[in-house]
Design a protein around this nucleic acid. Sequence first.
DNA 1: GATGAATGAGTGTTCATTCAT
DNA 2: CATGAATGAACACTCATTCAT
Lengths: 207, 207, 207, 207
Amino acid sequence: MTELQEARDRREQILQAAVAVFAERGYQRATVKEIAARAGIAPGTIYLYFRNKRELLLALADALIRRAADALLTFRSDLDVKSHLALILHDRLRFVRENQGLLRALATEIWTDRELTAQFFEQIILPVIGTGSIYTQERVARSELRPFRAEVVLPAVVGGILLISVLRLMAPDSPAAALSEEELVEELARLYLHGLCSHPEEEWDAR
Amino acid sequence: MTELQEARDRREQILQAAVAVFAERGYQRATVKEIAARAGIAPGTIYLYFRNKRELLLALADALIRRAADALLTFRSDLDVKSHLALILHDRLRFVRENQGLLRALATEIWTDRELTAQFFEQIILPVIGTGSIYTQERVARSELRPFRAEVVLPAVVGGILLISVLRLMAPDSPAAALSEEELVEELARLYLHGLCSHPEEEWDAR
Amino acid sequence: MTELQEARDRREQILQAAVAVFAERGYQRATVKEIAARAGIAPGTIYLYFRNKRELLLALADALIRRAADALLTFRSDLDVKSHLALILHDRLRFVRENQGLLRALATEIWTDRELTAQFFEQIILPVIGTGSIYTQERVARSELRPFRAEVVLPAVVGGILLISVLRLMAPDSPAAALSEEELVEELARLYLHGLCSHPEEEWDAR
Amino acid sequence: MTELQEARDRREQILQAAVAVFAERGYQRATVKEIAARAGIAPGTIYLYFRNKRELLLALADALIRRAADALLTFRSDLDVKSHLALILHDRLRFVRENQGLLRALATEIWTDRELTAQFFEQIILPVIGTGSIYTQERVARSELRPFRAEVVLPAVVGGILLISVLRLMAPDSPAAALSEEELVEELARLYLHGLCSHPEEEWDAR
DNA sequence: GATGAATGAGTGTTCATTCAT
DNA sequence: CATGAATGAACACTCATTCAT
């Protein structure tokens, strides 16, 4: 048991180093030597736990998938729509923030590595949309939301969160980075719930 | 004149080959040899037109920036809000579709190449947001749109378009890829103009 | 200790191969591949011990400098002038002979590599002259030698030794190569001590 | 005739550019392109006058040989020994100074190019020694000089001149570079005619 | 003759991976 | 288990030389 635990720890230690180096240099520029150095071990040791460099990346993708899956299970039908949406937005923003390194590490290879592309979309993006659909349909059924095409709206919301997060992380001078997360979520919730049209007759904000 | 034209053509020919190979393999995996082969020339010839492999990438980034700038100038204050938004959405979706290769080529390096990161955000994303802001504020002034934080909403819209485009291009089996562009734009316009809340009293769709 | 020794040996082994190849082909024509082959190792291994090809050359220059410095310390004020000069000439001839490869290796690059030029003159030629000066001035003080400009005479002597050595090594058919080293030193000592003028009155050789 | 003259001029123009570039960069680092640029012509043109890059070097060696031969013919039996030696030393120092570029250009390749080595020694160094011998033997016959081994003394003198020249040209801070040529020749003549031994009884300088 | 764009063989260097210790 | 020295295939880039114009 302790041995297995130790092996797990060693694996974890290597993966953490890999995240750091991949995030900094990108997958291709990252060298096994540097990952080993950052993990405080010899390069050869990595090959006792992973078949090759690419397996490191796939393991990281796996880790991201597992975390994303964990984060999906936050159904809260007890809250009103707006509070719930805000909760979800906060949650997703936090997810991106906390898995920044992992996301950057994968971002360099997702576009050209077929297996990774498939994994990323099938096991992260589509489940997010799918789960989101199920939940939102419930609200629709209760007439708290109007009927809509989840396959369009969900990616639109996720994409928005992603780009805003990227902007805030990679261009800290951009105006999008100046807002507090509170204000950001407020504005997004308003957008996604009420849109941009002017509604003179109803002070929506006062609701 | 013909000489200059020939040189320009040769440059263009190389860049096109580079886009193709970068998009397929990613910047790092792409070899100068393959780019040359795809362009039907010898590897050495590339170095008569570009200082090194990286200059190819930067030239492509430049090309993208120039195209993005061209695409920005579509002010149409004569249209009603919804038609105009639909026009813009169509336009952006087309831009991503048409510059797919270029975007994929850059996507692998944007995250780790500082100069590229800066260029991409400062010369593409921020101007898109900036120009969008100017236009939308005009509509706000005319009370056609409610006041909103452009620095949040614009990235949210752009991010939505990007992720939906990516999904449609890279995961053609996903439900988001099943819709016609017409339906897609319709749904997005609805989302961004009116949000998801149910408004029993006003038949928004009836306009 | 053994490890350090092994590393030192490996370095030495590479340097020896480098001397051989540089001497044969000159620095520029020498390929890392050939140096590796001559050392019986893979090309990549060289880069575990030297940053690049040029570092090989600089390491060789260092080696020569160290050897030259060691060879400088032969003060022998117990000998009479002629014997001492003969000793020094023998010593310098031997130095050139023994470091032939090293000298040829450097000879190709000294003329165009600023750092190497500086090193060679400042750390070899000038110290040789400087040390020679100190020693000879002592003899002058004892009236065993007449006063003279060391900055002219020392380079003249060193240059003479160099060219004669080069002739003997590179043009073995030349008359200068036909003499025994004994005869050579004898003739040089006579030249540098008594000059070429005829001195009928004094049988200098009979001394 | 004019055509032939033009061709000769063009050849000369190329060779001058080659001397400059070879002297600056060394033969190997020099590029045909840069030589062409310095000559104000296109790279291809060089190949109308020379078979390849190496022929440029050989042509330069030829030029040096021709100049050295011209410089050899200065017999002056009308002068006294000291004046004549001084004249020769001045002449040789000037030769090195004036052909500095040419000598540097060749210096990088002489050591590894067999044909060049042979040419240099057989057609320059050995003739210099040979011609010198003939002349000096005449002085010996007239008892103005003592008998000596020309094959040792001549290279010794030439080598001395070469190293001093090199020092003066490449290490302008060295003490050897501080003297006027007049003083330099004076000191060398003294060395080669009278040696370094002290001769208290005869004020040689007063002679 | 003159050009200079094109060539492509050849180089230094990197780095994932192996394996003897 | 762990090491890290050694490997060698692969790559970006250079440049002497050619040849169509």
